[in-house]
Design a protein around this nucleic acid. Sequence first.
DNA 1: ACAACATATGCCGGTCGCCGATATATATAG
DNA 2: CTATATATATCGGCGACCGGCATATGTTGT
Lengths: 118, 118
Amino acid sequence: MSDRPLQEPTLLLLTALADEPRHGYGLIQEIDAISRGRVRMRTGTLYGALDRLLQQGLIRVEREEVVDGRARKVYALAEPGRSVLAAETERLRTVVAEAERRMAARRATATRPKGALA
Amino acid sequence: MSDRPLQEPTLLLLTALADEPRHGYGLIQEIDAISRGRVRMRTGTLYGALDRLLQQGLIRVEREEVVDGRARKVYALAEPGRSVLAAETERLRTVVAEAERRMAARRATATRPKGALA
DNA sequence: ACAACATATGCCGGTCGCCGATATATATAG
DNA sequence: CTATATATATCGGCGACCGGCATATGTTGT
């Protein structure tokens, strides 16, 4: 189990599970909503990631159910996953803050329109 | 050029270049500082990423110099790179905010200590 | 004099997460 | 009776990242 930083699809998966358990296909729709249509998670990514996260113990299968004749597996965020998500958001916040600080504090070197502040 | 979200080493590279131009080895140290020792970028990642970012036009070679008998290549963030970094930080901020909102608004399903708020 | 370390750039093979394509099955809409 | 939405799952390929290696100079320690 590497502690490499999460890639964004994985981060979005954990985020989508942070408030309540959901099933696979529901996660795709939820992530579509979270990202305002910008991220459409593929099933190849989804089920692969779900297997991986289960194996890592970050999520677990909450229950299996049948709705309208269709089988569902409902996943829930496990405690270790909650910790990882919290640590990850915390780390990302500092990186984002640092990036914004630097962009503002920039020592302009690129071509810049005349009249731009020194 | 895919518009897939940046991975963290790449994000940190652009961040480290956001305020002023730096050379390769200096970037490693800068990233070490930004992440407070948590991320030690490998040279394999660095020079590979630098080549890729050059090819994508996100950065450019500002100048080449020799300091204390050692050759340096100084890289600068190009305009497209600045846009990408700005868009990326903006997107990450919304994801982080959403994750934090959901963690707070969680409908607890996991084992939770008695007395925890419903 | 020699070793160890910091500075500095670069390549290569392996790993692993992501993606597109494909497959399967049921319910509903046209 | 076909298309679309719901729902799960697998597979091959791609590409970013990483560890290891190579190379070279300057500095510090013994």
